[in-house]
Design a protein around this nucleic acid. Structure first.
Lengths: 219, 219
DNA sequence: TAAAGTACGTTGTTTTTACAACGAAACTAA
DNA sequence: TTAGTTTCGTTGTAAAAACAACGTACTTTA
């Protein structure tokens, strides 16, 4: 696991814990690595899950899927980010969302029973882990709020502008790159892909934005 | 504050803490009561806030408002429920959402600086409060997910059915009462009120649902 | 109890979106 | 290299939603 120490250190879950201490903790936590190929499901909605996942490499989409296969993407996570954290404390057994690899992805699973009823070594770091979890949950909250902001806009253009403005703010620049391809973006903003594509072109013609593939600029 | 002890005891924030202990805690927490009239804003988006709010009586809407006054209701809270909890841990100073009283409402404010750096009495309950906050945040999470589920449905009818099904499940009955009036429901589901009203009527004609004011039945 | 205000349903028109279908470009793998 | 696949933009048409306007019933309050 030393190979991934930088990734682990950068994770919000291990904030404030030293590299050597993290390695010790992983044993207590019963951490296990698994590899997923592109498009493989890591969590599937409704299935019982007992682990938190930490992305070691690659990328995953958090998403909801309804009965008819219509999907709604909640967020895309990269290395160091974690998922499934809400299951631990909301008293829910079954996963509320699906998690799907968008490329070959390595995930570290942590059994959260170990996290709630800790062993003696874990005890030392228990309160630190708990605090970190609070931050993780609050951040996920902010995230969901942001998504709600976007999807509740009343039409295609406003949704796009809401999203692009936030991305621009995150990047602290009018030029930025987004992590979604067109279909993913449509599923994130609850739009029809082709209609969205048309609107993007229209906005480019009107010189509101410029884009090329995933590179955007707000004018 | 003895008057509200039942309400406080029922709050997820004080889960596992006895009534007498709660009363002691409130001093350390610097709790203060305020009264708000119908439609008054308790929090306003973007304003700096330093308190968690606990509803003692009445009801409030959590909502987002954009530049043009278009609002999106996130949730309606009643007695014992708390808001502003994410501000404490997400390292955000300004409130991400507005909170508005929908009737005359009493709110208990708790300065969260006191909650993070506790006094000696607080210390005894500190870990309990933290655990409770984890649950609150995780539940809010589940809540936001549920809202996302509804608003991401592709048309009016599906949004309504998604919402009504959940309400029915919550009530564990095909007959149930909803907490929103029509305009609030429209703002919750990101719909036009009149279009929604029309669709509800249509669904009633088709004998999919029955309703009268806020009482609904799924057939 | 009269008057004003609010909540809700209804309707017709305009605007917007969804859907399907297609072609070009970019990417992948044999 | 070539064939197959995926991604993306474009277009026309059908479907749906937004909007405005209005009537009625119910509430509030003076």
């Amino acid at each position: 696991m030393e190979k991934y120490i930088k990734v682990l250190k950068a994770s919000p879950l291990f904030e404030g814990i030293s590299e050597s201490e993290i390695l010790g903790l992983l044993n207590c936590l019963g951490a296990q690595k698994k590899v997923f190929q592109k498009n493989a499901f890591i969590f599937k909605f409704g299935k019982e899950e007992k682990c938190i996942g930490l992305v070691l490499s690659g990328k995953v989409n958090l998403l909801q899927e309804d009965f008819w296969g219509r999907r709604s993407i909640i967020d895309k996570l990269g290395a160091s980010q974690i998922f499934g954290e809400d299951l631990v404390y909301a008293n829910i057994k079954n996963s509320m969302l699906s998690v799907q690899a968008t490329e070959k992805t390595e995930v570290l699973f942590i059994r959260f029973t170990n996290m709630v009823s800790p062993c003696s070594l874990l005890c030392v770091f228990h309160s630190r882990l708990i605090k970190n979890m609070l931050v993780v949950l609050a951040k996920r909250n902010a995230n969901l709020m942001q998504k709600i902001t976007h999807v509740c806009k009343k039409n295609t253009r406003e949704k796009l502008m809401s999203f692009l403005s936030e991305e621009s703010a995150k990047a602290k620049s009018s030029k930025f790159e987004i992590c979604f391809n067109r279909e993913e973006l449509a599923d994130f903003l609850a739009l029809d892909r082709s209609a969205m594509s048309a609107e993007l072109s229209k906005m480019q013609k009107e010189k509101i934005i410029k884009f090329q593939k995933n590179k955007f600029e707000i004018l």
